[in-house]
Amino acid sequence: MLNQISLFAENKKGALRCITSVLAQAHINIYTMLANDSAEFGIIRLIVTDPDKALKALQDAGYQCRLDKVLAIDMSDAPGTLDGILSNLQEANVSIDYLYISYNRQTSTPVAVFKTSEPETETFLRGKGYILLNSI
């Protein structure tokens, strides 16, 4: 499983830059960043080189954030790959809280990153032959 930082940020001009500045000053590289907005606040999800150090830097800068465990499945870059993963998860009655696609820098392949509250999902996916990543 990967550690992902989830944080709340005010929905205003320059908000993302403030976050990236905190991480740049702490010498933390961002592997994946997903920003979702709402009327006043957005949820930013980050996978970074040093999640514990990033969490502390962001909290010290006044951000409300936490570490979440997420699963990352290395995928082939072919039509239907994500559909196959989701089909297996549906058959196993696994509920997905959210999902986004990232990129594996080592293999140059897409990665499905998702959050679920069901602890047996990782074991199930490995049993199905999926490659789960500890870094991307």
Rank of each mutant, 00 (worst) to 15 (best):
A112W: 01
L86R: 03
I28F: 12
G127E: 06
G80L: 06
I73A: 14
I73C: 12
N88H: 11
Q59N: 07
S38H: 08
D77G: 06
T109H: 14
V22M: 13
H27N: 15
S6K: 04
D52W: 08
K69V: 02
L34V: 15
L86W: 02
F114D: 00
A112V: 09
R66K: 10
A57P: 04
Q59P: 00
T109N: 14
N29W: 08
P79G: 02
T20S: 13
Y103A: 02
R66T: 11
I73Y: 03
C18V: 11
S95E: 09
L23A: 10
Q106W: 06
L132V: 02
R45W: 08
I73P: 10
Q64H: 09
T116Y: 05
V70D: 00
L133C: 04
I85V: 15
T20P: 00
N104P: 05
S117K: 07
N93C: 10
A9L: 15
D74T: 00
L23K: 03
S102Y: 02
T116S: 15
F8K: 02
S135H: 10
S102G: 15
I44T: 09
S21Q: 13
D97E: 13
I96C: 13
E122K: 15
A92V: 09
F114P: 07
F114G: 02
L34P: 01
N104A: 13
I44V: 15
T81Q: 13
K13P: 00
V111R: 03
A92H: 06
Q59L: 05
I136H: 06
G84F: 00
A39V: 06
I19A: 09
L55E: 09
N93K: 14
Y103S: 04
K56A: 14
L71M: 10
Q25Y: 11
T20K: 01
F114Y: 03
K53Y: 07
M33G: 03
I131E: 12
K69I: 03
S95V: 00
V70T: 06
I28M: 10
T116K: 00
L132R: 09
L86N: 11
E40F: 06
E120P: 00
K56E: 13
N29M: 04
K128F: 03
F8A: 07
A15H: 03
M1T: 09
L125E: 02
H27G: 05
I30M: 07
L2M: 14
P119F: 01
T49S: 15
A15L: 01
D60C: 05
K69T: 07
Y31C: 01
M33H: 02
L7C: 11
F114A: 01
S87H: 11
L58N: 08
I30S: 06
I5K: 03
Q64V: 14
D77I: 07
T116E: 00
S38I: 04
E40L: 09
L58D: 10
I44F: 11
L7N: 06
L46A: 05
I96P: 12
N104K: 12
I19K: 01
V94R: 03
K69R: 12
A57I: 00
V22T: 10
D68W: 08
A57T: 03
R126S: 05
A112E: 01
G80N: 10
N3M: 08
I96A: 09
I43M: 04
K115R: 13
N29R: 05
